[in-house]
Design a protein around this nucleic acid. Structure first.
Lengths: 229, 229
DNA sequence: CCCTCCCACATTGTCGACAATATGGGGATT
DNA sequence: AATCCCCATATTGTCGACAATGTGGGAGGG
């Protein structure tokens, strides 16, 4: 429930964070088995700690466990990524709707600042925007929804999953140039305190990202028959 | 990840199911502490099993754990229930949208049958519809979305939470009579393969439920200032 | 040559004991 | 009397060992 990522205090915490990092960044490849004994020797902790860490990874939906068989990193499917984007479309759309009502004027001002800052960097040709900037933008709107359970769902769970999928399927960051304009529109809707529009724009924004990814996937793997949303 | 609720094979499975049942039905009251030693004696299993069960409860978001302090059943707030309904509105709206495209003709026929069956029971004055029927209806549409991650999110997580909140805050089942008509409309939209309409109707349906609950809560607890969504 | 059954092995599940950390109360000081 | 510090105690975190379960391979029969 802690999306605040406080400093790890327990061995299981540290092991969990390391494992999550390695999984999300692809050091531990998707679909691979997580052997408790193996990991316990590798990380020099007891099996109990490893089990605890694996349980938390399961909470994030990054691994799946079967009784008496073991834990595996989730299998990566193109369909899986598209499913995630459908969930994001729905949930972040709601987040934007709520943010338009619940964000304080101060938060909105900071959001605008963030966007102009990104604009400077994009203008100078920096690619910084690609990953961290986009995540930060969406993150603030999610926080702005003020719905704790929604925040936890997205920040603690879905976002790590999306990152993993993107890394492992070789999807680069989101579309840089066009996405920026969409972000601007969304912020404007929030500034105007227009929940309906904010939601609609956010949903379209994520839908476009999904379509973009989908077309890339079809190029990489053309045997799949198209699965219209 | 298994929304199929297969027969429990491991001791931790059984303990988890018992604990979840007790929590959802209010036998273990909200906000209460889950002492590992106490539970291990009570259920006659080792602490490791209890810890495992508590971890799974945490995965369902039914309990929260703090390092070196322990696990507590989640605190129940009226706001928390409303937050959940916002999430449901968003997620089940998407589920209905997807179901309108992905449900097979057979599944749709079964859904219609379910509704007429409910109609008979409501007509005869049975109150069966109140709980199980409503859940079943929503359940089928969620399954019909064919989005595995969405299904898991709702069935394994959010629905147990909603039930717990409803039981413990003394909310009876959903509004019987009016909800039935809304269900009919939703099914009709799915029959017509109209994703947009199905989503919109589902969202309105859940929003109405939320408003209904909200008004009840205000009667029960009139000191709270209204929190418009 | 292939299929089946059975057994040894590896892995996960469970247990009890020990270590580390929070908590509450009692005593000393002001 | 009030406040602060310190320690006893209870609880959680971690560990290694044992039990139960799944898995693969080899012996035997067809």
């Amino acid at each position: 429930m802690s999306h605040s990522e406080s400093t790890p205090v327990t061995a299981a915490d540290k092991t969990f964070l390391q494992l999550r990092k390695n999984i999300v960044e692809g050091v531990i490849s998707a679909g691979s088995k997580l052997s408790e004994t193996e990991l316990s020797t590798k990380y020099a902790v007891s099996r109990a700690v490893i089990r605890e860490a694996i349980n938390r990874l399961e909470t994030c939906r990054l691994v799946e466990r079967k009784a008496n068989i073991g834990a595996r990193v989730v299998a990566l499917t193109a369909d899986g990524l598209l499913e995630l984007y459908q969930i994001r479309e729905s949930l972040e759309g709601m987040a934007a709707r709520l943010a338009a009502t619940h964000m304080s004027d101060e938060e909105i001002a900071e959001l605008k600042d963030l966007l102009t800052q990104h604009f400077e960097e994009v203008k100078d040709g920096h690619s910084y925007y690609q990953e961290a900037g986009d995540v930060d933008f969406h993150y603030r709107i999610i926080i702005g929804s003020k719905n704790k359970q929604l925040i936890s769902l997205l920040v603690d769970g879905i976002y790590h999953l999306v990152r993993m999928y993107r890394v492992q399927l070789g999807m680069a960051g989101p579309r840089v140039t066009t996405a920026f304009g969409e972000h601007q529109q969304i912020v404007q809707a929030i500034v105007n305190r227009d929940p309906e529009l904010a939601e609609m724009l956010m949903r379209r924004h994520i839908l476009y990202s999904k379509n973009n990814i989908q077309s890339k996937l079809q190029i990489l793997n053309p045997t799949h028959k198209r699965r219209t949303s």
